[in-house]
């Protein structure tokens, strides 16, 4: 299957602290791919490197066929329109309403009419399970779960092929978290998205992920399906997936 993201021998160093030392993985089209690992292992850092928010010392990352470390400004701008990113706390623009947040990329990047944009925004709001009455609220007026949904709607505004989710279910109550999982699965089957996510939520990991990469001790400890994850010896894997085996 076509590779959407290829990470090759990444090395990341913060000051004197080595975060990644030769991390490689590849993500195929249509997969829901999870980055797992203990706190501070550099999952989020790796994801930030994929979306060009963070530089790395050596190695290469290819996203949708483009090498992000040597990409030109114009190509980078093009790439940025092809993915959506959901940040941990939503990262909605606080000076804009939910509607304006979702409409912003459409207004900036397309020449669609106002009516068409409204139509699209309404559809995205419905898609993620927000009420249309929430559209004109500001980010400070809505709950954490709604912020995540609104953030997801914004990430989906441009119909991306690739979606990055940073701990999508953290800070949600269990019911909303399961709803969010269902939403992600639905989106994948409806829109054919490739989804990369960082997660700590075991239930969500079992419910949604097709493939995982476990980063432990600066390297990939395991890459593959969840079914075989316990075949690998690693303290993190034993602690994290251990109880399921008993």
């Amino acid at each position: 299957m076509k590779k959407v993201i290829e990470v090759d021998e990444i090395r990341t160093v913060f000051g004197t602290k080595v975060v990644h030392d030769g991390v490689s993985l590849s993500i195929s089209e249509g997969e829901i791919y999870g980055l797992l690992g203990p706190s501070g292992c550099g999952k989020t850092t790796l994801m930030r490197e994929m979306v060009m928010l963070q530089e790395f010392q050596s190695g290469s990352i290819k996203v949708l066929g483009k090498k992000v470390n040597t990409i030109s400004h114009a190509e980078a701008q093009k790439l940025r329109k092809e993915w959506g990113v959901l940040f941990q706390a939503g990262a909605l623009f606080s000076s804009l309403s939910i509607y304006e947040n979702i409409a912003l990329p459409l207004i900036e990047y397309t020449d669609l009419s106002e009516k068409m944009i409204e139509e699209i925004v309404r559809f995205k709001i419905d898609l993620v399970g927000l009420k249309s009455s929430d559209a004109y609220l500001y980010p400070s007026q809505i709950s954490g779960g709604m912020k995540k949904k609104a953030g997801l709607a914004r990430a989906l505004a441009m119909d991306p092929k690739l979606l990055f989710l940073d701990e999508p279910t953290s800070g949600l109550d269990p019911i909303s978290a399961r709803e969010f999982d269902k939403l992600i699965l639905n989106l994948r089957s409806m829109l054919g998205l490739t989804i990369v996510m960082v997660s700590h939520d075991l239930q969500s990991i079992y419910d949604t992920l097709d493939k995982v990469a476990i980063i432990d001790n600066k390297k990939i400890a395991y890459e593959g399906t969840l079914a075989e994850v316990t075949s690998v010896k690693s303290e993190f894997i034993e602690n994290f997936f251990g109880e399921e085996q008993v």
Binding site: V51, L53, W83, V85, F87, A91, L92, L104, Y109
Partner: peptide, 17 residues
């Protein structure tokens, strides 16, 4: 500064703004 803390700046960058 506040926009940086709430990751709004990161969000802008990933959206190409």
């Amino acid at each position: 500064g506040a926009m940086k803390i709430t990751q709004e700046l990161d969000a802008m960058r990933t959206m190409g703004f």
